[in-house]
Every structure is written in structure tokens, then in C-alpha cells.
């Protein structure tokens, strides 16, 4: 079971790698090779996101960055308005996805400004839905601690490790 998942994953990575060779000729702009993500710093240690690796294995910038990088838009929902967009002023996740949790009310405000951006996840949601969603499809690691190791406060929160129930 685990073995077959691994083979699939290797296959997928190899495929993506070849594909990315073509896509990479677009990536002339500079981008950070590593990104430090610490929005869950209380329960988890910061994630050092290997941007380089993900640029290499992804179908193109638009896989994660929607219509903001000036690259061909992949998501058809975004493409209906932004198919010919230039690179946007901000391309970082937190440039658009709020650190504050979204609510039905905040979504409605968003709707007033950008009609079709009305179901936009907050930053934590955007990271997990995008990262974990892809990791699940690609057979990449999906455990919480595969990406971010827990802090002591996190162990206490989960009643785990040295805080595990005694029995």
C-alpha cells in the first residue's frame, strides 16, 4: 500500500519535473528560494517552505498564485476575468489572504469590493487547502508534523508527547 503510493508519487514527481522544464522558461522573474511561514508559531515551529522545489515540481506559478504572476492562468474560474493579466503588485499569499479569520460577514464585504472574490479563504485556510490539497493528490506527505514540527505548547494542546494521558 505504502509502496505503491510511493511509486505513484515518484512517477508524478518525475512527470511534473519534465513538465516544469517547459514552464520554467517563463519564470524569468526573481522569487525567494525559501519562504519562512510562522503564522501558527504558538503550536508549531515555523515552516521553511522550499519554494525552489515547488517551482520545479509545479505546473506553473498559477497553480498556487492564481492570476497574479503574469503567467498563464490555470484555474478556469480565475481565468474568466484574468486570462490576460499582467503581473500584479503583490504576489505573496498574505498579500491577498487575510491573517484575520474570515466569516460570512467579512466575505460579504469582500463581495462588495470584488464580486467574484467572495469565498476567499483566510491565510491559514489558503495555505492548508492549497498545500494539503495538492499533497493529497500527488501522494506527498500529509501528516501535520510532516510540514511543521510541534512546539511544547502544541504538545500540551494535543495532550501528546510528554502531556499524553497516562494509561
Amino acid at each position: 500500500m505504502a509502496n505503491s503510493a510511493k511509486t505513484i508519487m515518484k512517477g508524478a514527481l518525475a512527470l511534473l519535473f519534465f513538465f516544469s522544464l517547459f514552464m520554467n522558461c517563463y519564470a524569468t522573474e526573481s522569487y525567494p528560494g525559501e519562504i519562512y511561514i510562522d503564522i501558527l508559531a504558538n503550536h508549531y515551529q515555523a515552516v521553511v517552505f522550499d519554494h525552489d522545489l515547488h517551482v520545479m515540481v509545479s505546473e506553473g506559478c498559477a497553480t498556487c498564485h492564481h492570476h497574479t504572476t503574469g503567467m498563464p492562468v490555470i484555474n478556469t474560474y480565475c481565468a474568466s476575468c484574468h486570462s490576460a493579466d499582467e503581473s500584479a503588485a503583490t504576489v505573496s499569499c498574505q498579500g491577498c489572504h487575510s491573517k484575520e479569520p474570515v466569516t460570512a460577514g467579512s466575505m460579504q464585504q469582500e463581495r462588495a469590493a470584488f464580486v467574484f472574490h467572495d469565498d476567499k479563504p483566510d491565510l491559514k485556510g489558503a495555505y492548508h487547502l492549497s498545500c494539503l490539497g495538492c499533497h493529497q493528490q500527488m501522494g506527498a506527505p500529509t501528516g501535520c508534523q510532516d510540514c511543521h514540527a510541534r512546539t511544547e505548547a502544541g504538545d500540551r494542546f494535543f495532550n501528546s508527547g510528554m502531556f499524553a494521558p497516562a494509561h
Partner: peptide
């Protein structure tokens, strides 16, 4: 982490 849950007025949630 997955924003499974959205909080707000019930009437708005139904619409969303």
C-alpha cells in the same frame, strides 16, 4: 487548519 467551518449569520451561510 482547513477552514472547514465558516462562522456567521445563518441566513448568509445558507446563501454562501
Amino acid at each position: 487548519p482547513q477552514q472547514v467551518m465558516l462562522f456567521g449569520k445563518r441566513q448568509e451561510l445558507i446563501k454562501i
